[in-house]
Every structure is written in structure tokens, then in C-alpha cells.
């Protein structure tokens, strides 16, 4: 009785092992299902989901204009201080002083891509970008200034 049980266990273990190996053998010979994604060779065709959050970007139009009014609601909404907005006073054509952004500092090294800043923005000035290839050798390169040099506020945003 003991011997029967003993050899039965050995038989069953080998059988169950072979069952598992059969499955691996099946996938080894049936190549219809290939899940591997050939990054970086597929960079040309690789498309992220449209809502994918890779980084915060500030779109500029062809006249080098953006939509950011410098209201700082994104800075307040950011849970870990990765946004810093430096504003300046600009004198308009009619002599009035208006608050405008000087630099829009974005710490990509600290950003958790939580989307709270984009939701908080009242003028849709910032959007989430699709780029995810941010690897750098130097940490300083991860501190970015999002507004381009000489860029202006788009007309009609503030009203």
C-alpha cells in the first residue's frame, strides 16, 4: 500500500510536470501569438494611448503664442511642487499693467503625472504630452522651461 502510494506520487508529479511542459511546448511551436513588442525598432509605429500622460507640455501656435495667463492655479493644484511660475508686470498698449508669465518652470524629475494641474487650468494652456523617452545623463536637464523665449499670451484668452 505504501509502495503503491509512493510510486503513484512520483507518477503523478512527473505527469503534472509534463502537462506544464506540454503547454510551453505548444507555444514554442505555435508562433501565431506573439506578444513581444519590438521597442525600439517599432518607434515609428509605436503610438501611445491618446490619454497617455508622459509629460506636461504647453502648446504654442505658429505665432509663438500660448494660452497661459499666469493665474498659478496649476501651481496650487500640484501636490508636490513640481511647477513654479514666475510672473512679471507687462505694460500694455493702453498703458495698463497686466500680469504675464516670465518663466514656467517644470520639474519633470519630480512630476508624478497625476493630471491635477491640467484639470485645474482654466484656460487649457497645458496639456499632457505623449513623449516618454526622457532618459538623461544629467539631472539638470530634467528641469524644463515650458514657455518658449519671446512667446506671448494668445489674444482673447483672458476675457
Amino acid at each position: 500500500m505504501f509502495l503503491k502510494e509512493y510510486f503513484g506520487t512520483i507518477f503523478n508529479s512527473v505527469k503534472s510536470l509534463l502537462t506544464g511542459m506540454k503547454l510551453t511546448g505548444y507555444y514554442f511551436t505555435h508562433l501565431k501569438e506573439i506578444v513581444t513588442e519590438e521597442y525600439p525598432d517599432n518607434r515609428a509605429t509605436l503610438k501611445m494611448a491618446e490619454r497617455f500622460r508622459g509629460e506636461v507640455t504647453m502648446p504654442h501656435n505658429e505665432n509663438n503664442e500660448h494660452r497661459c495667463t499666469g493665474c498659478q492655479s496649476c501651481e496650487l493644484a500640484c501636490p508636490n511642487g513640481s511647477i513654479k511660475i514666475i510672473t512679471k508686470q507687462e505694460i500694455q498698449a493702453d498703458g495698463k499693467k497686466k500680469k504675464r508669465i516670465d518663466t514656467w518652470v517644470y520639474h519633470l524629475d519630480m512630476c508624478t503625472l497625476c493630471n491635477l494641474c491640467v484639470i485645474a487650468c482654466p484656460s487649457e494652456a497645458i496639456v499632457m504630452g505623449q513623449n516618454f523617452e526622457h532618459s538623461v545623463y544629467d539631472k539638470k536637464q530634467l528641469k524644463k522651461i515650458l514657455n518658449k523665449t519671446g512667446s506671448k499670451l494668445m489674444e482673447g484668452v483672458e476675457e
Binding site: 508622459g54 519633470l108 524629475d109 512630476c111 508624478t112 503625472l113 516618454f132 526622457h134 532618459s135 538623461v136 545623463y137 544629467d138 539631472k139 530634467l142
Partner: peptide, 9 residues
């Protein structure tokens, strides 16, 4: 040597 940002990348 290399920094890769993202949370998580």
C-alpha cells in the same frame, strides 16, 4: 549614470 523620470516610467 542615467536618470529616467516618470512615476513610474
Amino acid at each position: 549614470d542615467v536618470y529616467v523620470p516618470g512615476c513610474p516610467p
